[in-house]
Amino acid sequence: MTTSVAMHMSDGLIDTKTSVIFIGVAVVGVAFAAARARNDLDDRTAPMAGLVAAFVFATQMLNFPVLSGVSGHLLGGALASILVGPWVGALCVSIVLVVQALVFSDGGLTALGANITNMALIGTAAGFLVATALKRFAASKPGLIAVAFVAALVNTVVASLGFVLEYAIGGDPQFLGGVTTTIVGVHVLIGIGEGVITALTVGAVAATRPDLVYLLRGTRRPLELREESPA
């Protein structure tokens, strides 16, 4: 068994009943997101959203060191939701997790529901809620970069709390206390890395194509008035 390349929950960490519950949560959540995503997808944003998913896949491969012997990687929910909205963003991360589990044997199959719940649903929701709450600071470029950083940091920590919840329901109680402290602590550090990558990416897109940044919709900036068509 190679332990070094796996990045998500394997099968067997939580019991079957809990795995099935979270498969249900994931199916309902993804279906809901798909229904709402329609509104945010058109000829211009649909290709962008496909690329955001591919970018999240690529970036998830790039584990960065956080502690001696411990790495972390981007989860991508805040990044995707700031660029393409929360519903499409949740679908982007879900698709990445499905591709990873089915094509790259990364993340278990019965654990796919829990992995989607944590990274695509809970993490994305938390990141986007923070970004929305801080939206008024996002009108300036440094402000947007700071908002992206904070949203991504919260996204990572909250996603790790999803694992704690699942482990509390369907794991071995003797490990719960220890794993909670370790996993949340490490994910604060990983969240800083996620924050930096998210801030850089959102900053780069906003510098070239602010019209493709979902979070900036409705924020009026004088230089972009010509982007708005009269009809």
Binding site: T3, S4, V5, A6, M7, H8, M9, L13, M48, L51, A54, F55, F57, A58, T59, M61, L62, N63, F64, P65, V66, L67, G69, V70, S71, G72, H73, S160, F163, V179, T182, I183, V186, H187, L189, I190, V205
Partner: peptide, 28 residues
């Protein structure tokens, strides 16, 4: 954007930290 993703996955991935990630570290 696609080119950046391809370079990250195709080239930069060789420089990724091979240590277990936060979740694997916690479970190990």
């Amino acid at each position: 954007f696609l080119a950046v993703a391809l370079v990250l996955a195709g080239v930069v991935s060789y420089f990724a930290d091979p240590n277990p990630d936060g979740l694997d570290h916690a479970t190990q």
